[in-house]
Amino acid sequence: MDRRKVLKNMSLSLGFAVSAPTMLSILNSCTSNVATWIPSFFTETEGHMITQLSDIIIPKTAIAGALDVHVPAFMDKMFNEIASESQKETMKEGATAFANTFKNVFGKDASAGSKKEFETVLATYFDVPTDQQKQISEMMNQNKSKLTGKKLNTFLIYKFLTETRRYTLYGYYTSELVGETILSYDPIPGHYEACIPVEDIGNAWSF
């Protein structure tokens, strides 16, 4: 049985409760700030990629970040159970395109990439002027099957990055921790106040 299968089986029997030391002894490529989870839809390398990226997109500050609410595990489960076949396919192709680019840039496997290196790549794709952002969004609305070569590669990388970003926001802002303790939480308001100063509430209502 290969290592991935061992990990998958562990995941099935133990859920996400595998302790950090156990995980780290197996997944020696993981860095210490990575939450304990075992990818199932994603490969280990892809798991590392989305972990690093989600941590950059919603970092931990004085306020909890994406990894504190297990965004990578959430993404993995959503892609396994909810995503359409074409969404899955594009995500996988995008991850591969991203990993290849990463290797070309840094001369090493993405699975060994540092947070700094991921930040560098993400900045290349996301830190773009507003007018260029419009072009990017138009480019991403194209039909994948009509693209080839470099265009296809760019398309796929943006798909991978924007999907990762989307699921990071989704997983973070709808999580229990954020919903109950960071956003304003009021499951049974009991009464209605129609128009009050926003300072009286603070952060947005969680729902």
Partner: peptide
Amino acid sequence: DGKYFKGRK
């Protein structure tokens, strides 16, 4: 932007 509400009618 300075206005909000409490409760979900």
